[in-house]
């Protein structure tokens, strides 16, 4: 078995294309939505009365502890059962798959991010809450002006790390037939059984994108979290 360098180089273009058009889009959109949702869950878990909070926490636990592929298939199945594809006849299947993918990744990782936010919120000293009470600040203002800005500082590196983890999970989109990079690699390699080349290239693209980001997060962690 020879490593066909020429073929490998040929596949870089299409794979990078799939990377930019699908993998990156899903990761960025998914992370942003997950970061917002996660914050909402974390605040809800502090603010809601126990009878609402406990079921919410349980649902988040279930989402966190069950597999992404199952959740992706579930999302598509719901979509089909509501006649989704027929309702959006002008939208192609791949776009719908990507949108569902973003939604599932965002919800799944929001449960992890919520845990990180909670840790960040817990690390804020009680005195900050008390000072806010002594100034009669309304609750919403306390969150927005005092607690969230401080918690964010401690949480940001973790959010970045979850985004990287999400990035590496994007090949799961394969199960709902979204043409992300690894699917593309499999397709390109399958034609001539040149799997070595395509998966090497795909792996290197992953490494090239995730390793520097992870190093950056570690630096950020040292800087922001004292």
């Amino acid at each position: 078995m020879e490593f066909d360098l020429e073929f490998a180089l040929e596949t870089v273009g299409p794979l990078l294309m799939a990377f930019l058009q699908v993998t990156l889009v899903v990761t960025v959109a998914g992370s942003v939505v997950a970061a917002l949702l996660g914050l909402i869950w974390a605040v809800c878990q502090r603010e809601l009365p126990t009878p609402v909070r406990l079921p919410l926490s349980w649902v988040l636990d279930v989402i966190r502890m069950t597999p992404l592929p199952l959740q992706l298939l579930f999302a598509v199945a719901i979509f089909i059962s509501f006649d989704g594809y027929r309702k959006f006849p002008d939208t192609d299947v791949e776009t719908i798959g990507m949108i569902l993918g973003v939604a599932v990744f965002a919800i799944h990782y929001s449960t992890y991010m919520a845990e990180s936010y909670r840790a960040g919120i817990d690390s804020i000293r009680q005195g900050q809450w008390e000072a806010a009470t002594a100034l009669s600040l309304p609750r919403s203002r306390v969150w927005r002006a005092v607690i969230i800005p401080q918690a964010l500082r401690a949480t940001l590196p973790s959010l970045g790390n979850w985004a990287i983890a999400m990035f590496k999970d994007t090949p799961f989109l394969l199960v709902i037939l979204v043409p992300e990079m690894v699917a593309k690699a499999k397709q390109l390699g399958g034609a001539s059984y040149q799997y070595t080349e395509v998966f090497t290239v795909a792996g290197l693209i992953f490494l090239a994108a995730s390793y520097p980001t992870a190093v950056l997060m570690r630096k950020l962690e040292k800087k922001l979290v004292y």
Partner: peptide
């Protein structure tokens, strides 16, 4: 850590037999 689990699995499943 840097290369995805799925890519590693495909290496084992598709490349190793070659």
């Amino acid at each position: 850590r840097g290369t995805s689990l799925v890519v590693q699995l495909f290496f084992l499943f598709y490349v190793f037999p070659l």
